[in-house]
């Protein structure tokens, strides 16, 4: 983080990076866990889900930001949900038109993007209070962070669970896949491991003064 702030990127760039790193929806904020765990049994599913979610995130942010002065406070959540559901329905049909196999692999989780807290959270806490340009940039940042997290999980699970990455075999025939990784427990396990890794990195970055004791224990 410190290296980032030293370079002093443009405020918009800052907003984008924030979504990917400091406020990563999955690894830091722990939002939108259902699709994160459910569709990441292969890298390609993870990418598709990430792109679909980003699309809904960006489109709904644009619309909500445009309409932010026209929507009365009392009905704003209902309005947001309808807007999000509209874009999700569109994505649902677009994916069916692009590839039925992909559609079947993602199953109901495309439609469940509606209840992904990342999107409603972005709408409520950012798009409804900011002009279009920053809203879009922020939405892209969060979307990219979400996609990145899905890819992190999806590729680890596919490599270990099937011995492949994006369908290409990585190891020889002698590799016995860790089937558990592509099954539900693997989802929890791999996400848990990523969180451990991030917690460990965070701990190492902290000034080591009053954490020395704990670190010694952990080693």
């Amino acid at each position: 983080m410190s290296s980032l702030s030293k370079r002093k990127p443009a405020p918009n760039m800052d907003l984008f990076i924030k979504g990917i790193w400091e406020e990563n929806p999955v690894f830091i904020m722990l939002l939108g866990m259902c699709p994160v765990l459910a569709v990441t049994n292969s890298a390609i599913n993870a990418v598709a889900m990430g792109v679909a979610t980003t699309f809904v995130l960006v489109c709904s942010s644009i619309l909500i930001s445009l309409l932010r002065h026209a929507i009365p406070k009392q009905v704003r959540i209902a309005t947001y949900i309808i807007i999000i559901a509209t874009f999700v329905t569109m994505v649902d049909y677009l994916i069916q038109a692009i590839s039925l196999d992909l559609y079947n692999a993602l199953g109901a989780f495309i439609q469940l993007i509606v209840v992904n807290c990342v999107i409603l959270g972005r709408a409520e806490s950012f798009a409804s209070r900011h002009p279009v340009i920053p809203s879009v940039i922020s939405a892209f940042g969060v979307g990219a962070g979400f996609t990145l997290a899905l890819i992190c999980l999806g590729s680890v699970r596919e490599i270990l669970g099937a011995g492949r990455l994006l369908g290409l075999p990585l190891f020889g025939d002698n590799f016995e896949p860790w089937v558990i990784m592509v099954l539900p427990p693997g989802g929890f396990l791999v996400l848990g491991c990523w969180l451990l890794l991030f917690a460990w990195l965070k701990q190492r970055r902290k000034p080591a003064t009053h954490h020395l004791g704990e670190q010694a224990d952990a080693h």
Binding site: L67, A70, I71, P72, V75, A78, T79, I82, I83, A85, T86, F87, T89, M90, Y93, L94, Q96, A97, S99, L100
Partner: peptide, 29 residues
């Protein structure tokens, strides 16, 4: 007023996309 506006807009968008993708989806199926 605002709910009607949004509902109309969303209905319009959905119908447009459904009509546009319908031939592709039935071909895929």
């Amino acid at each position: 007023r605002s709910l009607t506006l949004i509902a109309t807009l969303s209905g319009l968008l959905v119908v447009l996309v459904v009509e546009w993708t319908r031939p592709m989806i039935s071909e895929n199926q």
